[in-house]
Design a protein around this nucleic acid. Structure first.
Length: 456
RNA sequence: GUGGUUUUAGCUCAGUUGGUUAGAGCGCCUGAUUGUGGUUCAGGAGGUCGUGGGUUCGAGCCCCAUAUUCCACCCCA
């Protein structure tokens, strides 16, 4: 057998100990925030039946699904005529009946429908699991990445939207991020705009174009609108909306005169107003909240509020996003359940914190005390001490063999272990153990109880 | 999915028009120092030049294929 070079699939990564320490630092803060706001954990299978996943993310999304090849002779029951060349698409559902989850929201909706009789509504759940997308990878864009979702289903209350903003704010505060924007908009407002400019029904084309304003500028956006079949009159009428400026309140009131006349506009504007009112009622001021009329978001299931969070001055895209979906469970046979949720992208948050150098040194939690191993007698002497250290809640380990002191010290240094405990023949005889601080290099002779007392 | 880009030691990178034995810094190992890391000094190991083909007397360098990285589009966390 020839030796093969080991490799991992495109767009996936290994996470070593120091990376895991930093990732766990992010997970910790997100999880504790979700729990503080009353969300309960949920996990769903890595793979779903393909029929659960398809058709939920638009045509583009379906193409990004990873499909799982059926076991056994997967061609056995495929009709002859489907096996022709250039027929891969039609063949897909015959040879793959399962797929890897693309996000956490659709599996959640599936779970809600399957467990509707046990669930007490409103149902608040959080879910931290990896998702897979057959995207072309780039920086900050992976084929396997973690999402941290929090959703509430079974209530229309806009209090949920306000609490989502609060949770984002809290997590970012804990991660010491302050220069970011929580962009918020409402699908109903976008609908109203297309109606107002006389292009009703062309909402998604409109969204795709204006979503790029930041990136390509007004002129190109207008070009794109024209390309997508908007009349010059419609584009003209859309201008005031695209370039809308001012505070969130100013934007809302200036839109009242135009979009407020339309039912969808009225609904969208008042919903947004309610969210702002709730935030005010909480007594917090979150200057990062920005009503951005050009925020669109691609996922087709959003119907009300939409969110997106972007950290400023970094090379990474949005790190969080979400919105309200009025009828996600409808396709699974449970109509009339409204939900709202959002998701943190841990992998992108990681890249952001790394780029801004914001990981605290406490992010690495390693061993606190290493016990040096001199010989078999000292090893035997040390084991009860090691047990006592651990019982006191101290992260401790003994070097597993009586290697050269140089090697053991080097091990402690590389692993960033702050203290080394010396209990060799001399120390055992005198009862005074050597306790070395690896940061200062200072070494003291102390009894074991004195050492324990330092960590109480 | 479309177009481009990257790949040479563990890491970051040099490598001339195709020409002998492919280099550096850092890291790693050994010793100075058989009970002390991080500093210093001396020595050492480590490469199928992403992979598979091709052109050539001769390929790290040219050609083809493929993988991978990153970028733009598309879309998104």
């Amino acid at each position: 057998m020839s030796i093969q070079k080991p490799s991992i699939p495109k767009g996936t990564r290994d996470f070593g100990p120091s990376q895991m320490a930093k990732r766990n630092y992010i997970f910790r803060h997100i999880r504790s925030t979700f729990e503080k706001f009353g969300f309960m954990p949920l996990e769903t299978p890595t793979m779903e039946n393909l029929s659960v996943l398809t058709g939920k993310y638009g045509e583009e999304g379906d193409q990004l699904l990873f499909k799982i090849l059926n076991s056994g002779d997967f061609l056995k029951d495929v009709p002859e005529d489907k096996l022709k060349k250039d027929n891969a698409k039609a063949l897909t559902f015959d040879i793959a009946e399962k797929g890897l989850r693309y996000d956490l929201t659709v599996p959640f909706a599936r779970y809600v429908v399957m467990n509707q009789h046990e669930i007490t509504f409103p149902f608040k759940r959080y879910q931290i699991q990896p998702v897979w997308r057959a995207d072309r990878p780039q920086k900050g864009r992976y084929r396997e990445f973690y999402q941290c979702d929090a959703d509430v289903v079974g209530t229309d209350s806009l209090l949920c939207e306000a609490e989502i903003v609060l949770m984002i704010h809290e997590v970012f505060e804990k991660l010491q991020l302050s220069d970011y924007a929580i962009k918020i908009n409402n699908r109903k407002i976008l609908t109203a705009i297309t109606e107002y400019i006389g292009a009703a029904g062309k909402e998604s084309e409109f969204c795709v174009a204006i979503d790029k304003l930041d990136k390509i500028g007004l002129e190109k956006v207008n070009e794109e609108l024209a390309q997508r079949g908007f009349s010059s009159e419609a584009i003209q009428k859309a201008q005031p909306f695209i370039v809308l400026k001012g505070t969130n309140e100013e934007k809302l009131s200036s839109l009242q005169a135009t979009l407020g006349q339309l039912p969808s506009g009225e609904a969208g504007l008042s919903e947004l107003q309610r969210v702002f009112d709730y935030l005010k009622a909480f007594g917090v001021s979150i200057p990062q909240v920005d009503f951005d009329i050009t925020l669109a978001r691609g996922l087709s299931y959003y119907t009300g509020a939409i969110f997106e969070v972007k950290v400023n001055n970094v090379s990474i895209g949005s790190v969080s996003g979400g919105g309200r979906y009025d009828n996600l469970t409808g396709v699974f046979g449970l109509p009339g359940v409204s939900g709202v949720g959002f998701s943190f992208g841990v992998d992108r948050l990681y890249d952001v914190l790394e780029e801004l150098n914001l990981f605290p040194s406490e992010a690495h939690t390693s061993t606190q005390i290493l016990i040096a191993n001199f010989d078999s007698d000292s090893e035997r002497f040390a084991l009860p001490l090691l047990k006592k250290l651990r019982e006191a809640g101290i992260r401790a380990e003994i070097f597993p063999e009586s290697a050269k002191m140089k090697k053991q010290m080097n091990y402690a240094d590389k692993k960033q272990i702050p203290f080394v405990l010396m209990a060799g023949p001399d120390e055992i005889a005198s009862g005074q153990l050597g306790f070395k601080n690896m940061i200062t290099g200072e070494q003291k002779a102390l009894t074991f109880d004195q050492i324990l007392a330092l960590f109480n």
